[in-house]
Design a protein around this nucleic acid. Structure first.
Lengths: 199, 199
DNA sequence: GGTTATATCATTAAAAATAAGGAGGCTGAA
DNA sequence: TTCAGCCTCCTTATTTTTAATGATATAACC
């Protein structure tokens, strides 16, 4: 039998809150939404009432992972959902029971919450971070901006041969050979952000 | 006089679009909103009807500033508003007539739009379509997954020549030449999702 | 001192991509 | 019917990238 689900959304953006609330209400009329402006505020709400799901922008726990873990342990029946609108550390994201992204479609959000309710929830792995050298990162950044080896070489004042050597080592370390794969890697590792890829 | 304002929102995120639309409708019932999935789509809308404001996620112009400027010059009466949800290049932001941020409050958004003044218009909405053909999207998807032309050709059962032709046309249409740029384009256009890009 | 990682550059040959044309068949709209 | 767009394939020439090596110099670490 379906009960009302109480949901806290920890999010300071009006647009995001309104939009998410709107979509959630379309998914089910049984969602009772409460907005919180901080982790502490959410914690105070949790003391007073029983909640089922907490959707949280990881920004709010970024500096306070300890508190987050404490609260999470205290309320173990709650589903903790990350609300992603940028690329975060996979480690940070692994703290959640699942994540949704602002780039998700209505359908994706719907199916996510369906799965969450049927407690069939998977979380992806924390990838061990490859450690690229400073110079390799320089090369990768420019590569992700769409530059050819020649351009990268002249930008970094090294020979094309050296660029090729760096790229070879990057591919060995990351296990990624294609340019598109390395581009995504660079974005996910926050070496570049999509917003800054303009040139 | 006609007070309806026609607004295009170029934004792929459902949450953001819904939230922003929600807030704008609270500000005024006279806003007529249309969603566009790309700059090109917006351009096609602009040809068919008069719009007053275009709200753009800068993601959609990061690789295509030239087109943006051309379109902007062509429709000089339109107010171009950047929709910011991360830190962008100041250069990029200077292209707009103004910006709002997802971190803005209702009040801030309200006062921003109050300050934007312009003209008239009416009428219905136009359906949207992708600028890339079906086959071009097939190619782009596989390209973004890191496949070489040869692999793409065998996957799609066409010759390498044909793949090259499609890629040529993709680059002409999007204005993006580099593989990394096209990869980001594919991600932003949600043709592929990052989770499925494993190498 | 030996080891390891880094950063730089090189050679050579093969593979792949790009540039810049042309071209035929097919479809749907004006 | 004409025309535009799409899908397919082609050639030729050039440029770029990759593969598989080797080499030198510097610095850090135990």
């Amino acid at each position: 039998m379906n009960k009302y689900k109480n949901i806290i959304i920890i999010e300071s953006s009006s647009i995001i809150y309104e939009g998410l609330a709107n979509i959630l209400m379309k998914i089910s009329q049984k969602y009772q939404l409460t907005q919180a402006g901080s982790l502490e505020e959410a914690n105070r709400l949790l003391i007073k009432k029983r909640y089922d799901i907490v959707i949280v922008n990881p920004l709010f726990i970024f500096n306070n992972i300890k508190s987050f873990n404490e609260i999470k342990c205290q309320y173990s029946s709650i589903k903790w959902v990350g609300l992603i609108y940028s690329y975060f550390d996979l480690k940070l994201l692994s703290l959640f029971d699942g994540t949704i992204s602002i780039s998700d479609s209505h359908e994706a959000i719907f199916s996510f919450f369906s799965k969450l309710n049927s407690n069939e929830n998977q979380q992806d792995q924390v990838s061990s971070q490859e450690i690229l050298s400073e110079r390799e990162i320089d090369v990768l950044k420019l590569l992700a901006k769409g530059m050819a080896n020649k351009e990268i070489a002249s930008r970094l004042n090294i020979s094309t041969n050296t660029v090729i050597t760096h790229r070879k080592n990057i591919s060995i370390k990351t296990g990624i050979k294609s340019i598109s794969g390395l581009t995504i890697y660079a974005v996910v590792q926050k070496l570049v952000s999509i917003e800054n890829l303009s040139d």
